[in-house]
Design a protein around this nucleic acid. Structure first.
Length: 198
DNA sequence: ACCGGGATGTTCT
DNA sequence: GAACATCCCGGTG
């Protein structure tokens, strides 16, 4: 059995569905990963790493199993699990969680949320709910002692996983139509507009 | 339910 | 200056 970190050293498109069902936790808050998107580095024009290393994307080129956090649209943070061996860029964006623990704390951070479904049903929302900001960029998810952790054994049944094109990309990008978004079928936290069944 | 636009700042051309 | 891996609110059907 390969370790989780060994699995994460692979192609993000392969790793992404393996992350479904795993648990992301920060302090007393945690959620089960319900929706992800794969971003290939050099060969994917939608990836932040497509044009090479920069100050923002440096973590994507680092070792697998670390957290890549970026600031989006001047207002929100989004977080990724870094894939591929050190030196090769790749990441999986975490788009939605099913809240598991610390729901009161999440609600305090997300005053706009009108229901449990509003807590973590989006990449910006879940970072706000868990309190993830730029200071989390580069942290090891698998050290077992850090403030942010990725855990969980086993995998989700293939039949329970849906896939489709990634959300929010410019239509002209060569990889915009690739089905590199993966989600738990029927989970209410998954982006509704892009998956009528979910 | 669906759609359109504003907020807001970092990155790159 | 434009683009952007988003979210929220207020319009309309």
């Amino acid at each position: 059995m390969p370790s989780l970190r060994e699995l994460l050293a692979g192609d993000p498109v392969v790793v992404a569905p393996l992350l479904l069902g795993k648990i992301l936790s920060v302090g007393g808050t945690s959620g089960r990963i319900a929706e992800v998107e794969a971003y290939r580095g050099g060969e994917d024009p939608a990836s932040h790493a497509f044009r090479g290393r920069s100050k923002r994307n440096a973590t994507m080129f680092g070792p697998p199993g670390h957290l890549y956090v970026y600031f989006s649209y001047g207002m929100h943070y989004c977080c990724n699990v870094v894939c591929q061996p050190e030196g090769v860029a790749g990441a999986v964006l975490v788009r939605a969680l099913a809240p598991l623990a610390g729901l009161e704390e999440m609600s305090r951070r997300r005053l706009r949320a009108k229901s449990e479904r509003d807590l973590c049903s989006g990449p910006g929302k879940l970072c706000q709910a868990l309190g993830i900001d730029h200071s989390f960029d580069g942290l090891d998810l698998l050290s077992g002692s850090g403030p942010v952790r990725l855990s969980g054994d086993g995998s989700v049944r293939a039949a329970a996983i849906g896939s489709g094109p990634r959300i929010g990309l410019a239509p002209g990008l060569a990889t915009a139509g690739e089905p590199w978004r993966f989600f738990l079928v029927g989970d209410p936290n998954v982006s509704r507009r892009a998956s009528p069944d979910g």
